[in-house]
Simulated scan of single mutants.
Amino acid sequence: MTDFTWSPQYGAQLDKTPRTRSVQFGDGYEQRRNDGLNPVLQSWTLGFQRSKTDIQQIDDFLTAKAGITSFSWLDLNDRPVRVKCPKWSVVEVDRSVTKLTAVFEQIFEP
């Protein structure tokens, strides 16, 4: 079961950031390895354009989580993933439509 049930607009962006550790040796040699059990972190930039009431519900949900508390969400391939939302913005498109853009960052916790 997912906590965040709103579907984003088309055009969502997925970014992947590998975590690595490296050591520089003499003569230009370098040794690299993965950092941790989950070395590739994912983040999504998502857009939601809906009525002011619907956007207010999403904004309230994200405000309650305050960028600290994680929640479950179905990613762009409908796989459940644990995320936090450290940043989002709200723009009034017109009197009845509002747009919210959010960044979801994948997290790993027990």
Rank of each mutant, 00 (worst) to 15 (best):
R32W: 13
K99S: 06
L74I: 06
D27P: 00
Q24S: 09
V83C: 04
R32K: 15
Y10Q: 11
I107F: 02
T17C: 01
T45E: 06
F61L: 04
D15L: 14
S70H: 10
F61N: 12
Y10C: 04
K87W: 01
T63I: 08
Y10T: 04
G36T: 07
V40R: 05
V103F: 01
D59C: 05
W44F: 13
P18W: 12
K87T: 12
L14F: 01
P110W: 07
T17G: 03
T69L: 12
M1S: 14
K87F: 02
D27F: 08
D60N: 15
W6F: 12
T17D: 07
R79D: 12
V83E: 05
E105M: 05
S43M: 01
Q56H: 13
D59R: 15
K65R: 15
V93D: 09
D3C: 02
T98D: 03
G28M: 09
I55G: 02
T2H: 13
W44P: 02
V90W: 02
G28Y: 14
L41T: 07
S7W: 07
I55D: 01
N77T: 15
V81T: 10
P80Y: 03
R79W: 07
L37A: 11
D75F: 10
K99L: 12
K99R: 14
L100W: 02
Q56P: 06
L76E: 12
P80T: 12
E30A: 02
A64S: 15
L41H: 09
V93E: 14
K65W: 06
M1L: 12
K84F: 12
W44G: 00
D3Y: 03
P8C: 14
R33F: 11
V83L: 09
K84P: 00
I55K: 02
V23L: 12
R50F: 09
Q24W: 04
C85T: 05
P18V: 04
T17H: 07
L37H: 11
S43Q: 05
A102S: 04
N34E: 13
E30K: 10
A66L: 10
G36F: 13
P110I: 05
L74N: 08
A66Q: 15
Q24P: 01
S43H: 00
T63V: 07
L100F: 01
D27L: 06
K99E: 14
S89A: 09
L46W: 00
L14I: 13
R33T: 13
G67Y: 07
W88A: 02
Q13F: 03
L62G: 03
D15K: 14
D60S: 15
Q57G: 13
F104R: 03
D54I: 02
D35H: 15
V103W: 00
T101G: 00
W73L: 12
G47M: 07
D54S: 10
I107C: 06
R50A: 14
S89E: 13
F48R: 04
L37F: 10
D35Y: 15
L62P: 08
F61Q: 09
V23P: 00
T63M: 05
Y29I: 05
I58V: 06
F104W: 08
R82A: 06
P110H: 08
N34M: 10
L37E: 15
Y10A: 07
T20E: 12
P80A: 05
D15I: 07
R82N: 11
W6Y: 15
